[in-house]
Design a protein around this nucleic acid. Structure first.
Lengths: 220, 220
DNA sequence: CAAAGAAATGAAACACGGTTCAATTGTTAT
DNA sequence: ATAACAATTGAACCGTGTTTCATTTCTTTG
């Protein structure tokens, strides 16, 4: 040692922190793009590293494991979708009208971004991620449930358990999209068939919500 | 060679065939039990072999691959369930009545045989099997579709695309059961909560089918 | 500039699980 | 009994894809 003087070198500077955050974001973004193109199973760590312009090992400085990385990717991706869904829930109108808009929004967006939607909804992933994926569906269900509750309170909908109904609607949407999403892209892309599908789906979900047939009991 | 005589030895005897068939069944049974306990991903070939009391290699004399083995397991398991469902479809009554019975049958059976139902419906599996599993849902959907079509023809149900509606109903049932089936067994087993769940599910599915409100247009 | 130490590298190690195969055991027919 | 050949064994194989780690590069401070 050079005469007892302590040399304090390298404390993480804001500049550096920024750079690190940027890299982290780059990794997540590359992973999102790749998973949207090839699905979860078909996306390996080396590939992600290449796409992000860094080395394989570096990924593990930012994320403890592949599962953790994709947890974040899925979370971020679905946050985006949920935002769009929530926006559809906020348009003014009766409960049935709003519900119709929500279902249509969900279906249209999923059909447009097929591979990502498949990764988020149907593609088989490991058990850890699977639990998360179920958690991602909850917000959709919650938003639907709220609209149903409001509709019931306003006597626009028949009495029901809004929780179960909302779960059923989520299931109905997912199951209906499952077929088209599983096909190799380019098949059902014709707006013709898809249009009919979305229309029938919306109608069925509306019926499930149980709209009151006529305007409130002739109180006028 | 012993003086030109041809020695024809070992032709597969009925006795032997029986033994082989028994082994094959043992393998399938062990696989079914293990998959019900730990899921597809958590069930390896060596483990199955141990449970069946044979060697790993022998499995491949009976099944060409792990996927093929589980294909058979799933097929056998769901054949039984589908039979029960089809029986519920054949009771006499109006379309809504029959549909209610079918939905209830499905839900009750699934909730009773939790582990198997989970394996057939929810447990994540590889891509090859996933396609098969979807195929197993088709019979349920087809049976529902037929009832809906008949109901439409009899003017018991509003006009609709029975195919989409039936897909929605299947999705609604599965999604509703997904929660209870995922819980560690013993949780929601109380008949209390389950009863309410089944009732609400049946009601929602009935609404989705769109029953005509009053009996046929006052023709009397 | 030099020291200190973090961040990045990428090739290699490792884990996992399905599949194979040479050797062994078992069965049939003469 | 024995030839012929099927059935069985289980340890080794192999591909895949995640994770590690010794080395190098870069950033900060005295």
């Amino acid at each position: 040692m050079k005469h007892g003087s302590i040399v304090m070198a390298y404390r993480r500077t804001p500049r550096m922190q920024q750079r690190i955050d940027a890299t982290r974001a780059q990794i997540a973004d590359a992973a999102r793009r790749l998973v949207a193109a090839s699905g979860y199973a078909g996306t390996g760590i080396p590939e992600i590293a290449r796409a992000a312009g860094i080395s394989t090992g570096s990924i593990y400085r930012h994320f403890p494991s592949k599962a953790a990385l994709f947890q974040e990717v899925f979370q971020k991706a679905s946050r985006h979708e949920i935002a769009a869904f929530a926006q559809a829930a906020q348009v003014p109108g009766t409960a049935p009208e709003r519900l119709a808009g929500m279902v249509e929004t969900f279906a249209r967006r999923a059909l447009r971004g097929r591979t990502l939607a498949r990764a988020l909804l149907v593609e088989p992933v490991g058990p850890e991620l699977d639990a998360d994926r179920r958690r991602f569906r909850a917000p959709y269900q919650a938003l639907i449930e709220e609209v149903l509750s409001e509709g019931m309170a306003a006597a626009e909908l028949v009495p029901q358990d809004p929780r179960i109904t909302s779960i059923c609607i989520v299931g109905a949407i997912v199951e209906t999209l499952l077929g088209p999403l599983s096909e190799r892209s380019g098949c059902t892309q014709g707006t013709e068939e898809e249009e009919a599908l979305v229309r029938a789906l919306v109608e069925t979900c509306l019926r499930a919500a149980g709209p009151r047939p006529q305007t409130p009991p002739r109180s006028e």
